[in-house]
Design a protein around this nucleic acid. Structure first.
Length: 671
RNA sequence: GCCUAUGUAGCUCAGAGGCAGAGCAUUCCCUUGGUAAGGGAAAGGUCAUGGGUUCAAAUCCCAUCAUAGGCUCCA
């Protein structure tokens, strides 16, 4: 390794943790990351790593103007000023109607802006409508935005009855935060305030010069309900009321945005999960616990069998471990004290404490430890679709993407230090292969290292962490996967790489994770005998590609909008007879296709064929096979795709060959 | 967990103190129709749960549960 190689910490500083604000959009596992991205000062966007080569993918829903720009350009854009200014106008309108409201902060964010308030009685939806109407009036008043520098004392006088502003002022002069509440190092010598019309706010800008630069019909504050938000994101502090706005340059852009939201809503895996009868979450079963209906289970099972075969081919060995374990196991691993608050509480069984399994690694470690190991055995790769249970706060649960019981496509590798980098590379390559075959081509990696300010949070010392982090970074560079390095995102036992997938709507989803772990082998005193006869300590790699199968299926549902490639579709073809006397042929066709391994059904209900087409189309069945007099006579099926394309008649043999080929190839197209 | 909203038939939703409603789905009857809803009938309800106010509660009040949008956290 060359002496110029930056330390992992230097990497983290040189690559902006968020390199494209568009990449932090949409539902994703870590809302905290969104918050951090929103608050990041423009400066933080300036240093963008050269290895970040995300290419834009085509979106069927049109381009979002803010998304095609880098975050830096966004912060300098006119749209950014419009949104920032609208936040102030919102505060003005709110204070007019609620003079005793306290104002907190109001930054521009992706797609819009928000402002946080403290109300004695929160506004109603009606109030919000009136506030929006009032904002349009203020905009039409052509008011100038003027900036003024003030001393801290002047500022304290200006905001004498605004405690949140006073706190910000104190922190600003002491160098703790900037106006958006972002932590910064240097104290700020001068403070600036911006005034428009009757409203003055502590603010570093920038703003539009006059409200006439804002189109009064290109924003909305009623598009999303009000929300609670903790002051400074700290749950121990006051909960404020956040009013969100979206704002654009033109009314058409606003319309497009609202349309995109609507499209995303239609793809919601919870909506499609019900419509396509994939899964249920039943209160009587419990919060965050999913029931898989036959359709969903078929999809899941197809995915799992495919992945299992891939793992066997890659030299993984299957293992199976139970759903609960002695608390002593998790005390030894260190998980219990560290993640106590996120686990189901222990249960007492005959005076011994047991826990629902929150992770599989300690169990796999015990399998490794069950027998003396030689360097000739390594790498050892244990794989299990292991179901784990974690206590998530109730407000945190969300469909399949955030549940309390889920199955990880988990594996643990035990390697020698020399094997670490190659093994790591092969894991990431396998991930690439798996996701590419699923048609998920757009993904990147996020390397998580220790928070250099809180080193005591982590197990083990530099001698374990630094080589491990370097192995990950080396691997990323060799593979050429786009990656960023982020401080404080490591697991407590080792640095990690998270795989982040960007779906067809350009939303980011964290998928699996690959973690280098030098610590658990130490805690469990794992050993192998090396070629020189010495007992040595192996290193572990923890990895999951899908992450949680439940969550992964949820992501697939949204990515494909429920229109799965044929090989994944729970039902691949439905045969629709035109008249009742075609039923026999329909059943014959179904039996024929089933014999060729296809999942098909003959729809023999006493309904008009048009009705059956409509209903099966809504179920997004890839192939609808219409059979009538001509088809019976000529042994054909008339193929109608779920895309509404009528492909005309194919001989039964031709269709069988086509369908089985597309399924075998796991093709993304269905004709 | 916290803030706000919502909870009526399998699904989507109307009803806002005075007899529990519609469309779709389901069942049955008629219908046999070549590419996005053929006709008719029946059945389907603890109006989330528990308590309260009232002559009377799906409707008003309180609590609980669940869901949604946020906030916070995530091995």
């Amino acid at each position: 390794m060359g002496s110029t190689r930056p330390t992992p910490q230097e990497y983290a500083r040189s690559s902006a943790p968020v390199y494209d604000q568009a990449l932090v959009s949409g539902p994703q596992p870590s809302p905290r990351r969104v918050v951090r991205a929103e608050r990041r000062s423009p400066l933080a966007y300036l240093s963008i790593g050269v290895w970040l080569t995300i290419k834009p993918i085509e979106s069927p829903l049109g381009e979002d103007p803010s998304m095609s720009q880098s975050a830096t350009r966004y912060a300098e854009s006119h749209l950014y000023r419009i949104r920032h200014s609208l936040a102030h106008i919102l505060a003005e309108a709110v204070l007019e109607k609620f003079p005793d409201a306290r104002i907190a902060i109001g930054p521009p964010i992706e797609d819009g802006f928000y402002y946080d308030f403290e109300f004695s009685t929160p506004p109603t939806d009606d109030d919000l409508k009136q506030i929006e109407a009032r904002m349009k009036k203020i905009i039409s008043g052509n008011h100038a935005f003027t900036m003024r520098e003030v001393t801290a004392d002047e500022a304290r006088q200006l905001f004498a009855n605004q405690p949140y502003k006073l706190e910000l002022i104190d922190d600003l002069v002491n160098g703790r935060v900037d106006e958006d509440g972002e932590q910064i190092a240097a104290p700020s010598a001068t403070l600036t305030v911006y005034t428009q019309n009757t409203f003055t706010d502590l603010c570093k800008g920038p703003h539009v010069s006059n409200t006439q630069e804002i189109n009064p019909n290109a924003f909305s504050i009623t598009f999303r309900p009000m929300a609670g938000a903790y002051w400074r994101g700290d749950e121990k502090r006051t909960q404020l009321t956040r009013i969100y706005g979206t704002a654009w340059q033109t009314p058409d852009e606003l319309k497009d945005y609202l349309h995109r939201l609507e499209e995303a809503r239609k793809r919601d895996h919870r909506v499609l999960g019900q419509q396509l009868e994939l899964f249920l979450i039943e209160p009587l079963v419990g919060k965050g616990l999913s029931l898989w209906l036959p359709n969903g289970a078929t999809l899941r099972d197809t995915l799992e069998r495919w992945l299992r075969q891939k793992l066997l081919d890659a030299g993984y060995q299957p293992v199976v471990t139970p759903h609960i374990g002695s608390i002593e196991l998790y005390k030894t691993s260190g998980h219990y004290p560290y993640y106590k608050d996120n686990q189901f509480p222990p249960m007492d069984v005959d005076g011994e404490e047991y826990m629902m399994k929150p992770m599989n690694c300690p169990h796999h470690i015990m399998i490794y430890r069950s027998s003396p190991r030689s360097y000739r055995d390594l790498p050892l790769r244990y794989a299990e679709f292991g179901t784990v249970y974690r206590y998530e706060k109730s407000g945190q649960l969300h469909g399949l993407t955030r549940v309390r019981g889920f199955t990880q496509d988990d594996a643990h590798m035990f390697v020698t230090p020399e094997q670490l980098e190659d093994e790591f590379i092969s894991v990431v390559r396998l991930a690439q292969e798996v996701f590419n075959e699923l048609g998920m081509n757009e993904f990147r990696a996020r390397v998580g290292i220790r928070d250099s300010k809180k080193l005591d949070k982590y197990a083990g010392d530099d001698s374990l962490w630094i080589p491990a982090a370097n192995a990950i970074i080396n691997a990323c560079e060799k593979i050429g996967i786009p990656f960023t390095v982020e401080e404080g995102e490591a697991a407590f036992y080792g640095p990690k790489l998270d795989l982040v997938f960007r779906d067809v709507l350009k939303r980011d989803w964290q998928l699996g994770t690959v973690q280098v772990d030098p610590n658990l082998p130490q805690r469990f005193d794992l050993e192998y005998t090396d070629s020189d006869g010495q007992r040595k300590r192996p290193i572990m790699i923890h990895r999951a590609l899908f992450g949680s199968v439940e969550r992964f299926v949820g992501i697939l549902i949204e990515h494909f909008g429920g229109a799965f490639p044929a090989w994944l579709a729970p039902l691949q073809a439905v045969i629709i007879p035109i008249r009742e006397d075609h039923n026999a042929y329909a059943q014959e066709v179904a039996a024929h296709l089933r014999r060729h391994g296809l999942r098909v059904k003959a729809d023999l209900r006493d309904k008009h064929m048009r009705n059956k087409i409509k209903e099966n189309r809504a179920l997004l069945i890839p192939w609808l096979l219409i059979v009538g007099d001509r088809d019976v006579a000529e042994r054909t099926v008339s193929v109608r795709l779920r895309t509404d394309e009528d492909k005309g008649a194919l001989s039964l043999d031709d269709f069988t060959a086509l369908a089985t080929r597309l399924v075998a190839e796991r093709a993304l197209n269905i004709f």
